[in-house]
Simulated scan of single mutants.
Amino acid sequence: MSLPKPVMRGLLAKRLRFHLPIAFSLAIVAAVAFKFGVTEPRKKAYADFYKNYDSVKEFNAMREAGIFESVRPSVK
């Protein structure tokens, strides 16, 4: 009694027909999850931050703290 030979002809095409749609669907799911799980909250956080951001006030606070070497603190 001998073992039958494995069927090798068309094996790659057969496995690709099965795995390719799964790979594409998982990639699409991962992209959608990243978009709504990471990028959308990040865009909302940036919008909320810059809604009330005062750059002049921030600059004056950094200048008073002595962060900038080329800008002297104002004397009040």
Rank of each mutant, 00 (worst) to 15 (best):
P21T: 00
V71C: 11
F36Y: 14
H19S: 13
V29W: 11
E69M: 06
A47V: 03
V56H: 06
L20E: 13
D48Y: 07
A13D: 12
S70P: 00
S25T: 13
Y50Q: 01
V32N: 00
S25F: 13
V71S: 06
D54F: 03
V56K: 10
F59Y: 13
Y46G: 01
V29P: 00
T39H: 08
R42E: 04
M8P: 05
K44M: 09
A13Q: 10
Y53F: 15
V29I: 15
R42H: 06
P4A: 08
N52F: 10
V29K: 10
E64A: 09
D54P: 00
R15Q: 15
A61N: 05
K76R: 11
F36T: 06
P73T: 09
R9W: 06
M1V: 15
A23M: 13
E40C: 00
A33F: 01
F49N: 03
G10L: 06
F59V: 03
F49A: 11
V38M: 00
P21D: 00
F49K: 14
F36H: 06
S55H: 08
S2R: 07
S70H: 08
V75N: 07
K57L: 14
K57V: 13
L11K: 14
L12V: 15
E64S: 08
Y46A: 10
V38G: 01
E58S: 15
S2A: 10
D54K: 05
Y53T: 01
V29E: 10
F24N: 12
A61Y: 04
F24M: 13
R63L: 06
M62K: 11
L11W: 09
K14A: 15
P4R: 07
I22G: 02
S25L: 11
Y50N: 01
F24A: 08
R9N: 11
V29C: 08
R72H: 01
V56C: 08
M62Y: 07
S70L: 02
M1K: 07
K35C: 05
S74V: 10
K44G: 01
M8W: 09
A31T: 05
S74H: 04
L20Q: 13
V32A: 05
V38H: 03
V71N: 02
I28R: 08
L11M: 14
A65H: 07
S2N: 04
Y50H: 12
S70I: 02
M1H: 06
V38L: 05
V71K: 08
K44L: 12
A30W: 03
R15M: 15
N60S: 05
M1N: 07
A65R: 14
A45T: 01
K57R: 10
I28W: 05
F68R: 04
K43R: 12
S25R: 14
E64D: 08
V75T: 11
K35T: 12
S74N: 02
A33K: 01
S74P: 04
A65E: 10
F49Y: 15
A30T: 12
V71D: 04
K57D: 14
V75C: 07
F59I: 07
V75I: 07
A47M: 03
L26V: 10
L26Y: 12
A23S: 14
E64P: 01
P4E: 04
H19Y: 12
A27N: 07
K43F: 02
A23P: 02
A30S: 10
V29H: 04
A47C: 05
N52P: 01
K5C: 09
G66W: 04
L26M: 14
K35N: 11
